[in-house]
Design a protein around this nucleic acid. Sequence first.
DNA 1: GCCAACGTTGGC
DNA 2: GCCAACGTTGGC
Length: 152
Amino acid sequence: MNYWLFKTEPSECSIDDFARAPTTPIVWEGVRNYQARNFLRDGVVVGDQVLIYHSSCKDIGVAGIAEVVRAAYADPSQFDPRSPYYDAKSSPQQPRWVAVDLRFVNKLPRLITLDKIKSSAKMAELPVAQKGSRLSVMPVTIQQWRDLLALQ
DNA sequence: GCCAACGTTGGC
DNA sequence: GCCAACGTTGGC
């Protein structure tokens, strides 16, 4: 089993949206960065645990936990011309982007703020703690996972 | 809203 | 293959 951190803008989809419909699979689509895509495609497997991180918003930080219920498959939004994630250069024969499905596990009682993450020396290697990092899907070691949740 | 940092594109 | 220009991300 692996551990990950996925970024999301809560104005688009937040931990509260997931909590509201806890049995509905969460389609994690729209990843349009090659490094993040490669993690999704080559690393993410069913059963993996995922930290849900809120970015580009007022309250930035880790908001909850989800679990992978479906490994990588062709992201349907890349073929939909009306989608903001549409990619004209992708084809069903040779899909460029992948999606995975998650299920809601829990919402943390309190957000683990980016401030707190940055102030922990143990989190220095976590891309999210580093200035300028734009990686939206990143691996987390078991130790980082434990240390991070211990920051609550 | 600003802007630094980053990833991608395209001309050469 | 280089790199300038550009668009985007994301914290502040």
